[in-house]
């Protein structure tokens, strides 16, 4: 399978602050990829490196088999808060897009504007959040990129505008067959639209993989207290908490959990993401009443 993005030991520092550290990733092409993590985890940095707006401090990055360069016709980018030019009309945005992009698909742009009900003569500054997001998506998609990067495109939208935006995005994914990487805090949305997920915490990739495999491979186990050395060697403990009598674990294991002394439950994607976020916060949380 070809890759949309390959990162090896990718690192980005701003002065003394490390925004992204030793990031190694292989994102397959033809997928809708979700990028999650707390604020400041490095999501925007990774997206901006991928579209060539930033230069890496160290490591290697390949996007669609090439070194990223800003302005590449093969990569579309919708920055955070879906920025548009407030003083220009919708039609002027499309004219500018056509002027700047040799690969501009005018029928696609005009069809989408009509479909989402935007008035071409309207100034972009007067659009609602949902309409602005649709305009930014249209401008990025009409470039006909092979890879579309979106930085929290739905964060500021109301639930209806969010759903409409995601419907449009998925329609474009089918129609244009492009790979999509989008960051979001709304894991429930990502669970619907993504088939691949990356969890970024404190500038590092904590887990990345196929959503179904992640769902099948993670388990919440509750059982009598045990120390880490007593656990099955095939398990990777993502998060754990203990009381004096009980252990609660989130483990990653490709094999089914067949130890009857544990009660095993499934997790949804949000639980898995939260386990990686809190598991990364430090050593296992210690509950009162022990030690």
């Amino acid at each position: 399978m070809t890759s949309a993005l390959i990162a090896e030991n990718l690192t980005k520092r701003y002065g003394r602050r490390t925004a992204l550290s030793g990031c190694t990733l292989d994102i397959p092409a033809g997928h809708v990829v979700g990028l999650v993590g707390p604020n400041g985890a490095g999501k925007s940095t990774l997206l901006q490196l991928a579209c060539g707006l930033l230069e890496p401090t160290a490591g290697r990055l390949e996007v669609l088999g090439e070194r990223p360069s800003s302005g590449s016709p093969r990569v579309g980018f919708v920055a955070q808060d879906t920025p548009v030019y407030g003083g220009l009309t919708v039609a002027e945005h499309l004219r500018m897009g056509a002027h700047l992009n040799p690969s501009w698909d005018r029928p696609l742009a005009e069809r989408r504007i009509a479909q989402v009900g935007l008035d071409p003569t309207q100034k972009a500054g007067k659009l609602s959040g949902g309409q602005r997001a649709q305009l930014a998506l249209t401008v990025a998609a009409a470039k006909r990129p092979d890879l579309l990067l979106l930085d929290e495109p739905v964060a500021a939208l109301d639930p209806l505008a969010r759903r409409t935006f995601l419907q449009s995005l998925m329609e474009l994914a089918v129609e244009q067959g492009m790979s999509i990487v989008m960051s979001s805090h709304l894991v429930a949305d990502l669970e619907r639209v993504c088939d691949h997920l990356i969890v970024l915490v404190a500038s590092r990739v904590r887990v990345a993989g196929d959503v179904e495999e992640l769902l099948a491979g993670h388990h919440r186990l509750v059982g009598p207290r045990r120390d880490p050395g007593e656990l099955n060697a095939g398990w990777t403990v993502v998060d754990e908490s203990r009381t004096d009598v009980q252990s609660t674990l989130v483990v990653r294991s490709t094999a089914p959990i067949d130890d009857p002394s544990w009660q095993a439950d499934r997790l949804d994607l949000e639980d898995i993401v939260l386990a990686y976020m809190s598991g990364a916060a430090g050593p296992a949380r210690v509950l009162e009443g022990q030690r």
């Binding site: 997928h31 419907q167 998925m170 329609e171 619907r192």
Partner: peptide, 14 residues
């Protein structure tokens, strides 16, 4: 597939 994703907002591969 296109009609379903445009209506339900889910991943096309699903």
């Amino acid at each position: 597939v296109k009609e379903v994703v445009a209506q339900v907002a889910i991943n096309p591969n699903t």
